[in-house]
């Protein structure tokens, strides 16, 4: 009861309960439990192969994963019953580790189509082209994203940093309530990382939660988590405050691999 009282001012946004997931007959997640409340920043850390990316993919609805047990609730609703596009419209946003290049699809067309598809799914009015352009300009200006980036095909010829900034731009535009950042630091130099992290920090709000998935502690120098989870072999094996990340940096993951 004590726990409930503490939480009653915060709404649980994401509840992952005893989740078991298989990929091609091999179980990757062995009963994972995780609760993210609105406004919180969670970091999920763990060695390669611990199931971090699997978790993010299953939450976003990527095909190829078989959930054999457990459930995922988002704002109390069964997320696993929803198609990926419904999850997006409900407010789930996955910032991809490797955002894909889509030659021939102009970034502006993509952004407008996606935003209007989400709004339509929520029963909101769609943006007219001038209103949309105005909004994109505002948002990209606030994130210091050059207009030139928007004129190209989606991520085509973008550097690693530009691709991540494009993800942050989408996050700002779609205004999701849950952002999952999958290995946002991979492939980025320290300057690009700082720019992307600044974008994420600018978007953090009391209503919007962030789940930062990372292998390395260094990202957490820029995005400071409220709660750190350590994943190993398909489970969360330890949770704690931000100091847990520093502890990991010092002592490595080996102790937790034994624990799992």
């Amino acid at each position: 009861m004590h726990q409930l009282n503490k939480l009653d001012t915060k709404m649980a946004l994401l509840e992952v309960k005893d989740l078991k997931v298989r990929v091609e007959e091999r179980e990757i997640l062995h009963g994972l439990t995780l609760t993210v409340n609105e406004g919180e920043i969670h970091a999920i850390m763990g060695p390669n192969g611990s199931g971090k990316s699997t978790l993010s993919h299953v939450i976003a609805g990527k095909p190829g994963y078989e959930v054999t047990d457990g459930q995922i609730l988002f704002k109390g609703e069964d997320l696993l019953e929803m198609a990926p596009e419904e999850r997006a419209a409900k407010g789930v946003f996955l910032a991809f580790q490797y955002p894909v290049e889509i030659p021939g699809v102009a970034t502006m067309t993509f952004l407008r189509t996606a935003l209007n598809a989400q709004r339509k799914a929520r029963g909101e009015s769609e943006y007219s082209t001038p209103d949309f352009l105005k909004k994109v300009r505002e948002v990209s200006k606030s994130l210091n994203i050059p207009q030139d980036m928007l004129k190209r095909g989606v991520n085509v010829g973008f550097s690693g940093g530009e691709k991540k900034r494009n993800e942050v731009l989408q996050m700002a535009l779609f205004e999701p309530s849950l952002c999952i950042l999958d290995e946002m630091d991979s492939g980025l130099d320290i300057d690009a990382l700082r720019i992307a992290a600044d974008g994420v920090n600018a978007l953090h709000s009391p209503k919007r939660a962030m789940v930062v998935i990372t292998h390395y502690q260094r990202l957490l120098n820029y995005i400071v988590p409220d709660i750190v989870h350590v994943m190993s072999k398909g489970r969360v094996v330890k949770s704690g405050g931000k100091e847990l990340a520093l502890e990991l940096e010092a002592s490595g993951y080996a102790q937790f691999e034994d624990a799992a």
């Binding site: 997006a88 419209a89 955002p99 989400q118």
Partner: peptide, 15 residues
């Protein structure tokens, strides 16, 4: 490409 399709769906576009 399934990866491209998933990216677009994850951004809210129906199939």
């Amino acid at each position: 490409d399934d990866n491209l399709l998933f990216y677009l769906k994850a951004r809210g576009l129906p199939e």
